[in-house]
């Protein structure tokens, strides 16, 4: 545990650096790749803190699955428009952005100065977790015994979101739209036949 501060600052610094890249890079794909590295740095910080399960899940879910989907969509749209170009933004928007950023930073400082940290620690110290059989065992036992209801409710929420997404993607066309499309198709075919005849 004596080397962890060094790694904490190393990966924390990397996370901040790559977060800046996410915002400042002009190409959307490059931004997305930087975001992957941000997630990876987070995972490294979790691992240094001894939370191996969270680290693995962070890489598996965020870096491995969600970001692949993001990049897939970005590449499919093949956007060449730069996602960020400071010259094109309005002066007012720039001013608002600066003020909002400073205000947010101020809010963070205020919260950390005034909150009662360090908060009371629970029974889950690093050594206690090691005694109970490691992160994975402890987390899964808690999740499937004590917190089974919140866990199930969350999964139902996710399921509802999934069903909603599918419903939006597969939206039924109204009958008027179907008729209009059929008519358009007919006209197109008739036009093609006329052209063919002329040849």
């Amino acid at each position: 545990m004596d080397i962890s501060p060094f790694f904490f600052y190393l990966f924390g610094g990397l996370a901040i650096l790559f977060s800046l890249f996410v915002v400042l890079k002009k190409s959307p794909v490059a931004s997305a790749f930087s975001l992957v590295l941000v997630f990876f740095s987070f995972a490294a910080i979790y691992a240094v803190l001894g939370a191996h399960l969270i680290a693995a899940l962070q890489v598996l879910v965020y870096a491995g699955a969600i970001m692949v989907l993001f990049i897939f969509v970005i590449m499919l749209l093949n956007q060449d428009v730069p996602s960020f170009d400071i010259a094109r933004t309005h002066v007012v928007i720039r001013a608002v952005a600066v003020v909002a950023t400073v205000a947010l930073f101020g809010a963070f400082v205020w919260v950390f100065k005034n909150s009662a940290l360090p908060a009371a620690r629970g029974g889950f110290s690093a050594s206690a977790i090691e005694m109970a059989g490691g992160n994975t065992v402890v987390v899964s036992e808690l999740m499937f015994n004590q917190y089974i209801l919140p866990f199930e409710v969350t999964s139902i929420l996710l399921l509802a979101a999934m069903v909603g997404a599918v419903a939006i993607a597969k939206r039924q066309k109204s009958s008027a739209e179907v008729l209009r499309e059929a008519a358009a198709n007919q006209r197109k075919q008739a036009g093609r036949a006329a052209v063919g005849g002329a040849k």
Binding site: L53, A55, A56, V68, F72, M75, N135
Partner: peptide, 25 residues
Amino acid sequence: DLNVGILFTLAIASLGVYGIIMSGW
């Protein structure tokens, strides 16, 4: 012998796809 075991393999293996995506792009 990590206590996350197989999850480590799955997590790291899922990063391999970035090489392919990156090379294509």
